[in-house]
Design a protein around this nucleic acid. Structure first.
Lengths: 235, 235
DNA sequence: AAATTATGGTGTAGTTTTAACACTTAAATC
DNA sequence: GATTTAAGTGTTAAAACTACACCATAATTT
C-alpha cells in the first residue's frame, strides 16, 4: 500500500536560494564562493538538499537560516529547473527560491563561515550551472512583485525614509523616479505610518522616518484595494 | 567525477498538468477519472514521471501530447509541490504545469482511451491529493496572465468573434464586461486582424471574425507597449 | 411583405489617474 | 550670516477609464 511507484526512477532534488539585500543604493545578492566540487572556485547560489522529513519550503528555509541566521523572512518559490543536463555532475532537479532580507540583519559570522559574499546584481561574477538563469528569473519576479505588492519593505530597515524607499525602487527598476509623484503615490495608499523621528545620516536637514503598517495594508486588501507603484519615465 | 552527491537521497519527481479549454461559454479542465491505485475512482490531473532522458518541460509536453495529441501549445510551469506528505502513497515532488488549448483541436479518441473528461472549473469533482490546490493556483495565474499578456487567444479558435473573446474574459474573471469598452480596448491595441468573414452560428446578423496577429504583437512589444485588458465592474 | 426578435455593433461625456515640472525649507558647516 | 545639500511640497495638462443607450442586420414568424 505504500509503494505504488516502485518502478519509477528517483532523482536528486535540490533547493537553491536567490537572496536579495539592499545596501548602499543598490541591490545585492548573497553568493557562495565554492570551495568544493563540482565547480570549485566558481560562484553559486546557496543551496542544499531536502532532508527525509523536509518539504521543499522547509529545506529552503533551512538553507536560508543556516547561512544568514534569519527566520520568518520573505521567501517565495521561484521555479523548478529540471533539464537533464543542467548540472554536469549528475541529474539534479533544482527548485529555486527567492528571498528578500533586511541586509543589516544577517549574521556576519555565519556568512563568513560559509564563504558567502554580497555581490551587486549589476556586477555579478560567473555563476555555476544555470544559476544565472535563476537570478534573472528572480529579478523579473521581483520587478513584477514590487509593482503590485508591498514587498519592497522587506528589503528596508523597519524604519526608513521616503528617499530611501524611492532609491530602492530606482534600484529595482533601474529608472529614476520623480520624487513628488512617488511620494504622493506612496502616501496616498495610506499604509505607511509617519514617525516623529528623523534620520539625519544622509543630510543636514534630516528626513522623516516611516514604517510600513501591515494592519492598515490588510484592511485595504479587505476593502478590495490594490497596491501599485507607478514605475514609468522621468526622462 | 560524476557522483558528487552520492550520499544524498533521491526522490520521485512527477509532473501534473492543469489543462484549460474554453467551450460553451465556460472554462473547462481536462481531468482523469483514475482507474488505478492510488486513489482509484477519484479524479486527478493528468500526470506522469519524467523519463531518464527527459527534462521536466519535456515530460509535461509528453503527458499533454499523449493525452490530447497536441504539440506546440501553450504550456507553462506553475509550481513545484514538495510537501513530504502530499502523496499518501510515497513522497513525490510534483511539478505542476498549466496548459491552454483550443478545445476543438484535441484528439477525442486519446482522451477517451485515457478515461479523461472535460469538467467545468465551476463544478469540479473531488480531486486527489493537492490537485485542487494546483488548480486554484493555475486559475489565479491564468487571471493574472490574461490581464497582461495576450494568452486568451490560446483558448479560442484561430478565428473568433468579439463576443466570443469577451465571453472568454467574462468566464476567466467571472464578471460581466461592458462590450463597448471591451471592444474599444481590444481594437485600440491593434493586434487583431479583422477578417471579411462573419460567423453566423450564434446570431442571425452574424459577427465579424478576427484573428490575433503575433507579428503585430511582437512589434508592439518591441516598441515598449504593454498589453492590458481592463477587467473591472459593469454593475 | 410586414412585423418581430435576437444579437452585433458603435460614440460621447464625466471622472479619475497619470505625468511633467521648480521652488522653498531646514539645518549643518564654514 | 552666507553657503551648501538634501528634503519636502502643489498644480496643470494629457491620457485612460467608466458609464451609459440606441441603431443595424438578417432570419423567422405571421
Amino acid at each position: 500500500m505504500d509503494r505504488y511507484y516502485s518502478h519509477e526512477d528517483r532523482q536528486l532534488v535540490a533547493v537553491d536560494c536567490v537572496i536579495f539585500g539592499f545596501d548602499d543604493q543598490e541591490l545585492k545578492l548573497l553568493l557562495i564562493k565554492r570551495n568544493m566540487e563540482p565547480a570549485k572556485g566558481l560562484w553559486s547560489l546557496p543551496g542544499g538538499f531536502p532532508k527525509k522529513d523536509e518539504g521543499l519550503d522547509q529545506a529552503a528555509e533551512r538553507v536560508l537560516s543556516q547561512l544568514t541566521g534569519l527566520k520568518n523572512v520573505y521567501l517565495e518559490q521561484l521555479y523548478a529547473y529540471g533539464d537533464v543536463d543542467r548540472d554536469p555532475g549528475e541529474r539534479v532537479v533544482s527548485v529555486a527560491y527567492c528571498s528578500l532580507i533586511k541586509i543589516e540583519d544577517y549574521d556576519k559570522d555565519l556568512v563568513k563561515e560559509n564563504n558567502a559574499h554580497w555581490r551587486p546584481v549589476n556586477d555579478l561574477p560567473d555563476l555555476v550551472f544555470d544559476h544565472l538563469v535563476m537570478v534573472e528569473k528572480a529579478m523579473r519576479r521581483l520587478r513584477r512583485r514590487a509593482r503590485t505588492q508591498p514587498i519592497g519593505f522587506e528589503l528596508l530597515p523597519e524604519k526608513f525614509t521616503m528617499p530611501q524607499l524611492q532609491s530602492l525602487y530606482e534600484a529595482i527598476y533601474q529608472k529614476e523616479l520623480d520624487k513628488r509623484n512617488f511620494c504622493k503615490k506612496m502616501l496616498s495608499m495610506r499604509m505607511l505610518d509617519k514617525l516623529d523621528e528623523k534620520d539625519k545620516s544622509t543630510s543636514k536637514k534630516g528626513a522623516f522616518l516611516y514604517r510600513f503598517n501591515p494592519e492598515k495594508y490588510e484592511q485595504l486588501l479587505a476593502d478590495g484595494f490594490y497596491f501599485t507603484v507607478d514605475v514609468k519615465t522621468k526622462k
